[in-house]
Amino acid sequence: MPVIRHAREDEVGALTAVGLRAWEGAIVGLADVGRMRRLAENAFGDFLANHWLSVSLIEVDGRPRGWAARENFDEMISDLWIEPEAQRRGLGGRLLADIELRISNDGFDAAKTKTHAKNTAAIGFFRKHGYGVTWLSTSYAPKLDRDVEYIGLGKPLAVTDLGLYGR
């Protein structure tokens, strides 16, 4: 049975490995995975070491199979990564629903995210879960030394009734 919970600092290494394996599939067609792998591994490790408090993970049989983050504790989902062999089993949807609930409970009326425009799997995943395209932009990616198209996605969330007057 999958369990969703907050990450712990001692799980940074395991979550880095999960993110890196998922990233390898997401970056295909955009960059040379082999050339970028070490840079990506360091980026995941640094992010998780500094932001593990913003991370929720989903585990199956005591093993992390995916994670999501709200880097700034706002409405933006900065990361959502599921182990490639665990994809298409509903784990991403469960993790997304959990993070959307957290966003709503924190008083935001919409959830937002972004990805590169060639990441059709992620775009399809978010669209399947009710997200619509909110913007498209091109910007220079220094690590790739080229312009990259990014797509923004958003979903209105039901406001949780906190039982407060006037809400």
Rank of each mutant, 00 (worst) to 15 (best):
M1D: 04
P2C: 02
I4P: 08
R5M: 05
D10Y: 11
V12T: 10
W23A: 10
G25L: 13
I27C: 05
V28D: 09
V28S: 12
V28M: 09
V28T: 12
A31G: 08
G34Q: 05
M36C: 13
M36N: 14
M36K: 13
R37A: 10
R37I: 05
N42C: 06
N42H: 14
W52Q: 02
S54V: 00
S54T: 13
L57N: 03
L57Q: 04
L57H: 03
L57Y: 01
E59T: 05
V60P: 00
D61S: 12
R63N: 07
R63T: 14
G66I: 01
W67F: 07
E71C: 06
E71S: 10
N72S: 12
D74P: 09
E75H: 14
M76R: 08
I77S: 08
S78R: 04
L80G: 00
L80Q: 06
E85D: 15
E85Y: 12
Q87C: 02
R88V: 11
R89T: 07
L91F: 12
G93C: 00
L96N: 04
A97S: 14
D98W: 13
L101E: 15
R102L: 13
I103V: 13
N105M: 12
N105T: 05
N105D: 14
G107N: 10
D109H: 12
A110T: 11
A110G: 01
A111R: 00
T113E: 08
K114T: 12
K114C: 11
H116V: 02
A122C: 07
F126L: 06
F126I: 03
R127W: 10
R127Q: 15
H129K: 09
G130F: 11
G132Q: 05
V133E: 15
T134S: 15
T138R: 15
P142V: 09
P142R: 06
L144H: 06
R146S: 09
Y150K: 09
P156Y: 05
A158I: 08
V159L: 13
G163H: 04
G166V: 02
R167D: 10
